[in-house]
Every structure is written in structure tokens, then in C-alpha cells.
């Protein structure tokens, strides 16, 4: 099984809108991440651009449509498409979400939450095993941003992820923004979540922006909207994680209301600065 092995540097989510700027000069970007489903056409500019990026940068392929958290069987056709894509680009890492997005053959195009029980644990483990066996590589599983909880849940999310990693050998993708969003939405301390998280399995970190709204009772409800710079409390949480973990591949995600390239690059540079400082402290 090919292990997930991104450089321990800051990267950004690639958007075609930034391609010309990226190409214009060498970038101090550790890696680019793309959504797998956007590269499942047969040809055309998406592949021409990704092929060019691949020549110069490390690559992470991030799936958003496999529905690993579904109680229903994985879509074998989709899994085959993921294999074709990974075989073609040989990315340093492949990751997906602890969530579901398909039901009864309908694709719901959102990362939906699941209850954490012995039953769902076994099913997700089965699915992760199936993905890793098909792709012939270790995958990373990402913690979700959630807005609701399930009455039937009996397992903490951190224990749920730790058990999946232990039993399948998969790595984890720790989305620090998701931690902050979900902890706020469930009135929990994000630092407690980090303290319980199996950091030893983390191979990549996600950072992103969120926005604020309120719930039915007037309490703050955060939305994982990826349409703003990374917020200060998320940077602070990230510094805590890096302080404990040392440098690890760290991605800045920006999916909606895209900024100009220099602004996104500056976000990655801010993450790189934190990584560099952690490396220096370790060396000292």
C-alpha cells in the first residue's frame, strides 16, 4: 500500500481561475490539492492544467463524492474512476470525508453527517478498506464540519476516527476549521477536541474560512463556507496543533467567492510561517 506522503509544507486548493498567475512565476507552494470529481472528464483543459501543475508541484487528490459514510454500498463505478485518476497522476496523497453524499442513487452534493455507533463504525471501516484495496494506497479521512448531532450516537467523533485509523491503517486529515466550526456549533471547546484527537495518525491539515449565522435558539451557528480568509481563532488552534505535532502538510482551502491569487498565496505563506517556526523550535 502506497503511503500518503505530502511534503510537510503549506499548500493551496487549486482553482482554474488562478492557473495563469501560478504559471507566471515559480511559486513557493508546497503542494496543490484538487477535487477528484473535477478531473473525471475524458480530456480538455482540466487535464492539461493538472498535468502541467503536476510537473512542478506535489499533488493531493481530495474526493468530495465517494460517500464513505453511507450505510449503502460504495459506488463501484466511482471508485473505479478514482483509481483511474490516481493511477494517472500518482498523487502524494488521496483523501476523502467522514460523511455521506449519495443516497438511493441520488447525489446530494453536500457532506452529510452520520451517527457514530458500532454499526456505522463497522460500515465506514469496511468502506475505507475497500477504497485502500482498490487504490492500492493509504487514504486520509477528514473530520467533518457538522451542524447537528444524532440522538443514537454512542461514540465520540475523535474515538470514532481513531478506531478507523487503527483498524484500517488509513491516515487522518485534520481540518482545523471544521474542528472550530463543529465545536462552536455543539458548544464544545475545540481545544478539548484537539486534545482527544489521534494526532499521531494526522498526515495533512486543512485550514479554511467560515461564516456566522444563528440557530433556532439564537445561538451562534458557524457555516464551513470556505469563502473568507482563515479566522484568527482557527490560526490559534492551528498553532497549537503544529506545536504538538511538528510540521505537517497544511492546506488552505478557498472554494467560494475566490480571491485573487496573491491573497490566497499570502494565506499559504502565513501557514508556512507557522510551520517554519515550529521546525526551528524543534531544531533548537
Amino acid at each position: 500500500m502506497i503511503p500518503s506522503a505530502l511534503p510537510r509544507r503549506a499548500g493551496v486548493g487549486f482553482k482554474p481561475e488562478h492557473f495563469a498567475d501560478i504559471l507566471a512565476e515559480p511559486q513557493t507552494i508546497g503542494f496543490f490539492e484538487v477535487h477528484a470529481e473535477n478531473y473525471m472528464g475524458a480530456g480538455g483543459p482540466p487535464h492539461a492544467q493538472l498535468g502541467k501543475l503536476r510537473e512542478d508541484y506535489a499533488l493531493s487528490i481530495h474526493g468530495v463524492g465517494l460517500s464513505i459514510g453511507s450505510m449503502q454500498p460504495l459506488d463501484r463505478d466511482h471508485l473505479a474512476r478514482l483509481k483511474t485518476l490516481c493511477d494517472r497522476y500518482r498523487p502524494e496523497s488521496f483523501s476523502e470525508h467522514l460523511a455521506w453524499s449519495s443516497h438511493d442513487g441520488v447525489f446530494l452534493n453536500d457532506l452529510l453527517p452520520l451517527p457514530y455507533t458500532r454499526e456505522t463504525l463497522d460500515r465506514v471501516i469496511e468502506h475505507v478498506d475497500q477504497v485502500q484495496a482498490t487504490l492500492g494506497r493509504q487514504m486520509l479521512l477528514e473530520n467533518p464540519a457538522t451542524y447537528l448531532l444524532f440522538a443514537e450516537s454512542t461514540i465520540e467523533e475523535t474515538d470514532f476516527l481513531a478506531e478507523i485509523a487503527r483498524r484500517t491503517g488509513c491516515g487522518l486529515l485534520l481540518d482545523v476549521n471544521n474542528v472550530f466550526v463543529a465545536a462552536t456549533n455543539h458548544n464544545l471547546d475545540p481545544r478539548d477536541y484537539i486534545a482527544r484527537f489521534p494526532l499521531e495518525a494526522v498526515r495533512e491539515i486543512h485550514l479554511g474560512g467560515h461564516s456566522e449565522t444563528i440557530d433556532d435558539h439564537g445561538a451562534c451557528l458557524l457555516i464551513d463556507s470556505h469563502d473568507t480568509p482563515v479566522k484568527d481563532p482557527v490560526w490559534a488552534l492551528y498553532e497549537t496543533v503544529i506545536g504538538r505535532l511538528g510540521p505537517v502538510a497544511s492546506l488552505v482551502e478557498w472554494d467560494n467567492d475566490l480571491p485573487a491569487w496573491p491573497m490566497l498565496r499570502a494565506e499559504a505563506e502565513a501557514a508556512q510561517h507557522i510551520l517554519d517556526r515550529a521546525a526551528q523550535q524543534r531544531a533548537a
Binding site: P16, F19, H35, P45, G65, H97, D224, H226, D255
Partner: peptide, 25 residues
């Protein structure tokens, strides 16, 4: 020619949607 970058001001449907793993507010 090499990468199909759309001309400035051109509003082209050809690329189609990008997926997202983000929600919206």
C-alpha cells in the same frame, strides 16, 4: 492554446461547475 484558459471577459459555460466541499451561508 495549451491550457484552454478562457479569454478575459468571456463568460463561458464550457468548464462547467467545480465541486465544493464547503457549505454556504
Amino acid at each position: 492554446k495549451c491550457y484552454g484558459i478562457a479569454m478575459k471577459g468571456q463568460n463561458d459555460c464550457a468548464a462547467g461547475p467545480g465541486t465544493t466541499c464547503a457549505g454556504t451561508s
